[in-house]
Amino acid sequence: MVQASSQNPQVRRLIVSIHDVSPRHEGAIDRLQEQLERHGARTPAMLVVPNFWGEAPIVRGTPFATRLREWADRGIEMFLHGSEHRDTSRHDGWIKRLKANHMTAGEGEFLGLSGVEAATRIAMGRTLIEDIIGQPVAGFVAPAWLYGPGAIDALQSADIGIVEDHWRVWDAGSGRTLARSPVITWATRTPVRQKSSLAVAAIVRSIPGPRVMRLAVHPGDVGSDRVRRSISRTLDTLRRHRAISRYADLVDDTRSAA
């Protein structure tokens, strides 16, 4: 396995993350962590949802809040991942409706928000998570990687750090691209989507790919043996010639290259 090295824009990197970190998914998060650690990803980034679907609030002083702080103290990068992860916006235009209805199951929370509403949710979630973990969040990732214009404006004003979508990682304040990189992820919502994501993962394992690759897992992945095996195979394959890295390493790479 390639050894990680900061401030080296030539290093081929693999960044691993766990999405939808919430008290609602605590058991699944533990299983994902155990699986990733067995395959070399000991400190995957965590994308934290303050109140998943309005039904699982993270509360200061609770055992789950304590775990978040312990994970952050271990060096795990903590990202704010929306507010509720639920899309309640009314979308105008067929492109937005297509994204909202077909790219996710009603979870593109930040796709249709105004700049004011997006900024409010980001500020509230950021305050909660940073108060719990005792350090700044690493950045923000919108649920389902979907951003509307209001969300983009709010993120730039908030200067929250690192942001990503399906194809790119960038700095929220400056807009500077840190990496152009696809996300490898698995869909378990329907049999057709699952087969498609398994096929994509198999293809990715067989081609060189860009310098930076990202692998993202979700709590729903633990319910499928086929998906779990695919995650393990993909992680093992990609890490043979890549350093398992942090998002912060992308910032270092960009500074070094400049």
Rank of each mutant, 00 (worst) to 15 (best):
V48N: 00
V227T: 10
L128D: 08
G223S: 11
A201M: 05
R211C: 02
V59D: 08
Y247M: 06
G108I: 03
I29Y: 03
V2Q: 09
R226F: 00
R67A: 14
D159G: 14
S232G: 08
H91D: 07
R205P: 01
P63H: 12
R13C: 02
E37V: 14
R60V: 15
I203D: 10
R90H: 11
V222W: 05
L215P: 02
V222N: 06
P50A: 05
H91P: 03
V251K: 06
R86F: 10
H25W: 10
A123L: 01
S114I: 02
W186Q: 04
G54V: 05
H85E: 05
V116N: 03
S6H: 11
R13P: 07
P50D: 01
Q35F: 00
S181W: 02
V200H: 09
D171A: 12
D73S: 13
R193A: 15
A243Q: 05
A4L: 06
V11Q: 13
R189Y: 13
P182V: 05
I244R: 01
Q156L: 02
D131C: 08
G115F: 00
P23A: 02
A41Y: 06
V49W: 00
D131S: 15
M213R: 13
V217I: 05
G148Q: 05
N101R: 14
E164Q: 11
P136G: 09
Q10S: 12
P9L: 03
S197Y: 10
E117W: 01
L113E: 02
P23W: 07
S6E: 12
H166K: 13
Q3E: 13
V59W: 07
R168Y: 07
V16Q: 03
F140R: 07
D87C: 04
A72H: 08
R12L: 06
A56I: 05
F52S: 06
V183Q: 11
Y147G: 07
E37G: 13
D87W: 01
D165C: 04
A243I: 09
T234E: 08
R211L: 12
F52M: 12
R239Y: 06
T177N: 03
L215E: 09
R97E: 08
Q156H: 15
I162N: 09
A105R: 12
G150Q: 06
V116S: 07
R69H: 12
S206E: 15
A158W: 00
I244D: 00
I76D: 00
L113K: 03
S174V: 11
P143T: 02
R189C: 10
V222Q: 03
L111I: 01
R176M: 10
A179G: 09
V200C: 05
I76P: 04
H85N: 01
S174R: 08
E117N: 09
F110L: 02
R126C: 08
R86W: 01
S196K: 14
Y247F: 15
H166Q: 11
T254R: 15
I18G: 08
L47R: 00
G54R: 05
D171F: 03
W186A: 00
T190F: 09
E55H: 02
V169C: 07
E26Q: 12
H25T: 10
H25K: 02
G61P: 14
W53V: 00
